[in-house]
């Protein structure tokens, strides 16, 4: 069902956890549809210095969460905003078609976290 790369990220997910007093937190999904993803960011000079996630969801949900954290570490916020759900799925070498819609939300969670950071900073 899942390719080796997805299974690798699923069984050894990178950057699991929370960041206390994170600069930005983003959450998407709801338990009704089966996915909840929460992403925590640490930001310095518009660069993402640390990122962690917590996810309730299927193999694809966990793998995409893990993948997106790897993709954004060290990137600028602008660069991070260009990452799409599609790009995450591609970085994983593809997902089963049935999983493309409901589990492929990690980039959305990332964007929410960035928005949260910008909103907090603006205050």
């Amino acid at each position: 069902m899942y390719n080796d790369k997805v299974m690798d990220h699923f069984s050894n997910p990178r950057n699991v956890g929370e960041i206390k007093d994170a600069a930005g937190v983003g959450e998407v999904g709801n338990a009704k549809c089966g996915d909840i993803m929460r992403i925590y960011l640490q930001v310095e000079n518009d660069i993402i210095t640390d990122v962690k996630f917590k996810t309730f969801g299927c193999g694809a949900a966990i793998a995409t969460s893990s993948m997106v954290t790897e993709m954004v570490k060290g990137k600028t916020l602008d660069e991070a905003l260009t990452i799409s759900n599609q790009a995450v799925a591609e970085a994983l070498g593809g997902l089963p078609p049935a999983k493309m819609h409901c589990s492929n939300l990690a980039a959305d969670a990332l964007h929410e976290a960035i928005k949260d950071y910008i909103a907090k900073k603006g205050k």
Binding site: Y2, M7, F10, S11, C33, G34, D35, F56, G57, C58, G59, A60, A61, I62, P96, A98, K99, C102, S103
Partner: peptide
């Protein structure tokens, strides 16, 4: 509580145990 069936199944599978789940994610339905 607090976890999702498919991830549980996949983990069991990696340990060689075959089971099933009523999670939507397993069936690909919503």
């Amino acid at each position: 509580l607090f976890i999702e069936g498919e991830s549980l199944l996949l983990n069991l599978d990696m340990k060689g145990i075959a089971a099933s789940s009523g999670s939507a994610c397993t069936s690909g339905s919503l």
